[in-house]
Design a protein around this nucleic acid. Structure first.
Lengths: 211, 211
DNA sequence: TGAGGTCTCCGCCCTAAGACTGAGTTACAA
DNA sequence: TTGTAACTCAGTCTTAGGGCGGAGACCTCA
């Protein structure tokens, strides 16, 4: 019987030790490589050609997502399981879009992780309930219509500058347009956002992280 | 020769496995207990009376700091080493104030962790360089003079309302004072903050988390 | 007692902001 | 070809914002 070849990517030595020591106790699994960064993970994947990769997202050099994307592009048959400490919204979706199959948290039990590996070679995904919840709220949020979504490109640009605290004249100078034009944009922006003045628009921009 | 009795607290099973499996390879160490939450850590510490505790801060129930405090209060001779995934500013200082001796990150090598344990029983602290840096910047920030520190109480109150996006009239109504008075306050605020208009003052308020 | 800081208010003045209306340009899709 | 949307600019008008000077009431500290 052919063992499932697993590669472990994590910048925490202790975590790699823990995972490897447990995986080795399973008869149908074998750890064929370890990497401590996204960069080295790509090189190692080329070399050892694992069946499954357990990938931490939050690493010192922050290359977990890039590594997933790169590996998936080069070797589509390698299944990647994200195994990370917590749910960082800014990473969950890029990671899944990158082609990762499953998404687990390190709070998962050893059995769950092993189970996810066995399912991975059958291309069956395992998504941690908490992550699944995030996905649902994201989908809801995605269908939610934020006021600034129907700003035009130019208006959004102006809104950002308002958020920087610029006056109409400064914005005009910055964008090489007339102050009258800026006023028109600002007027339209206030209308679309449903606010009364530029100060509230600036606050809106900050609350929605447009600056 | 008496072994150093170590207890490991982490809500990640894999991490506990990794740490334990490594510590067990050292002749002068022995793992006498594992806990997966702050709550159970306190109970276990009472029971096994370890010399040193490796404590993760970021656990599902978020009781790492409380556990440190409680254990240190009850058993001052037990040395606690914080061993956590990343630097959460809101936890670093409470943790150290709680009586923890050392602060390591999980990116630390196995050797560093073992070394920290050996130093702990001699009551010598090991602070991860990155954490030390944070401590320094915190000390600097503490002595740093932010512009809004010389606002009067009333002015600060007005600044917050500016940050909410209120107009002078609205602020006047809210504080039951005349609009002229508000204008005076606003004028003083702008002068003290060194900004030109209320929009920038509002942004200042947001950047400095006054709202 | 007097000096200084804070909070309150007033008046005068100027300017930036914003509403409203109108219009010329391009680019793109029906 | 003809809308339609986006971007541009103009003119007019009203108001909120903000600078400047002055002042009275209150409190605290020297």
């Amino acid at each position: 019987m052919k063992k499932i070849r697993v590669m472990v990517v994590d910048d925490h030595e202790m975590v790699r030790r823990g995972i490897c020591s447990y995986l080795e106790t399973e008869d149908d699994l074998e750890v064929v490589g370890q990497a401590n960064s996204g960069r080295s993970a790509i090189a190692l994947a080329r070399e050892v050609q694992p069946d499954v990769i357990l990938m931490d997202l939050i690493m010192a050099d922050g290359t977990g997502v890039e590594a997933s994307t790169e590996i998936k592009k080069e070797f589509p048959h390698i299944q990647i399981i994200i195994l990370t400490s917590f749910i960082d919204e800014s990473l969950v979706f890029p990671a899944l879009e990158s082609g990762a199959l499953s998404y687990l948290l390190k709070t998962s039990s050893a059995e769950e992780i092993v189970q996810a590996i066995r399912l991975a070679i059958k291309q069956e995904a395992v998504i941690e309930p908490k992550v699944a919840t995030k996905m649902l709220t994201k989908i809801r949020d995605g269908s939610e219509h934020l006021p600034h979504h129907d700003l035009t490109e130019r208006e959004l640009e102006v809104l950002v500058l308002i958020g920087e605290g610029m006056t109409n004249q400064e914005i005009a100078d910055d964008l090489f347009i007339g102050i009258k034009t800026v006023k028109t944009h600002v007027s339209n922006i206030l209308g679309k956002l449903g606010v009364e003045d530029r100060t509230r628009a600036a606050i809106y921009a900050h609350r929605n992280k447009l600056v």
